[in-house]
Amino acid sequence: MSLTLLQSFLFPPPPSFFITAMSVISFASLTYSGFLEARGKHLQYSKFSDSKSREIKVSSKTGMLILYTPAFLAGVASFALFPSEGLRFLLLSSALTIHFFKRDFEVLFIHKYSGTMVLHSVVAIFLCYFISTVTMIYAQHLTQGFPEPPIDLKYLGVALFLVGIIGNFYHHYLLSKLRGKGEKEYKIPKGGLFNLVICPHYLFEILGFVGVSFISQALYPFAFTLGTTFYLLGRSYATRNWYISKFQDFPKDVKAMIPFVF
C-alpha cells in the first residue's frame, strides 16, 4: 500500500513515541498470541481453561467483569476529560464505551458460565483491553488540529460498528441458549452463522473494530484491529479443532471464522 494511499484515509502519525511504540507492540503481541493459540498454547478462559491447574483462579463471571469494566470506565471518563473534541472523537469514545458496556451487560445477563479463569490470563486480557482503549482515545485526542483525511470513513465506520456489535450480540445470545438451567456441558452451536463457521461472534467482533478504526482514521486503531484479527484467527482455528476433538458429529464443512474460506 503506497504512502499516498495511506495519507488519503489516515491522519498523519502524531509526534508521539508512545503512540508509535504502542502501535507496534499491540500489533506484534496480538499477532504472536494468535500464533500461540493456533499452536495450542491458550489464554486460560472459556473452553480452554485448565481445571487441573494449580494457579490462582477466579470464577468466569468475575473474571469477565474484570476484563471489561476498566475499559468501559475509561470510555466513560473520556467524555469528561475531553468534552469538546469534535464529532469524530465523540463517535470513537461512544463506540468504545458501547462496546464494553455490551460486554458487561452480556456477562451479567446473557452468558452462562461453567468454570473458572486463571488469574494471570485475566490480568493479561484486562491490561490489553484497558491499555488499548486508553491509547485509542489518546491517539484520537492527538489528531486535534490536523486536517481531516481526504477520504472520510467515519460514517461507514459507524455502520460497520453497528453491524459488528449487533451480530456479535446475536451470536452470543445463541450460545447462551444452548444450555438449559443447571447445564454446564458444551454443545455444538446452531443457528445464525454457526451453520457456516464455529466462531461467527469473532467475525463480528473484528467487523466492529474495523468500524472503530474507520471512525478514528488514526494509525493505532488500525494496528490494534489488524493484530486482533490475527489473534482471533488463531483462537478460532483452535476452537474448531477443539470441537472436532470433542464431537464426532461435528460438521466438517463448518469453518473456523470466515464462511467457506477459513
Rank of each mutant, 00 (worst) to 15 (best):
residue 11 F to L: 03
residue 116 T to D: 00
residue 92 L to F: 15
residue 202 Y to L: 04
residue 136 M to V: 06
residue 259 P to D: 11
residue 168 N to G: 05
residue 91 L to Y: 10
residue 36 L to G: 05
residue 49 S to R: 06
residue 142 L to W: 09
residue 120 H to M: 07
residue 7 Q to G: 12
residue 177 K to I: 10
residue 44 Q to A: 02
residue 96 L to S: 13
residue 85 E to R: 10
residue 86 G to Q: 12
residue 134 V to F: 13
residue 63 G to K: 09
residue 174 L to G: 07
residue 12 P to M: 07
residue 144 Q to V: 05
residue 109 F to V: 05
residue 243 Y to I: 04
residue 228 T to L: 12
residue 222 F to I: 13
residue 57 K to A: 08
residue 226 L to G: 09
residue 204 F to S: 03
residue 1 M to S: 14
residue 104 D to K: 00
residue 236 S to Y: 02
residue 105 F to I: 03
residue 221 P to A: 08
residue 102 K to E: 05
residue 95 A to K: 08
residue 189 P to E: 03
residue 90 L to W: 13
residue 42 H to Y: 05
residue 40 G to Y: 11
residue 212 V to T: 13
residue 118 V to H: 01
residue 228 T to W: 10
residue 125 I to W: 06
residue 31 T to I: 04
residue 172 H to A: 00
residue 192 G to R: 02
residue 260 F to D: 08
residue 141 H to R: 06
residue 239 T to L: 02
residue 55 E to R: 15
residue 179 R to K: 12
residue 247 F to A: 05
residue 51 S to Q: 12
residue 233 L to D: 13
residue 163 V to L: 06
residue 229 T to E: 08
residue 59 S to F: 04
residue 60 S to I: 07
residue 172 H to F: 03
residue 174 L to H: 09
residue 1 M to I: 14
residue 215 I to E: 01
residue 37 E to R: 05
residue 176 S to C: 04
residue 120 H to K: 12
residue 68 Y to H: 02
residue 132 S to E: 14
residue 246 K to A: 11
residue 74 A to E: 02
residue 234 G to I: 15
residue 51 S to D: 15
residue 165 I to M: 07
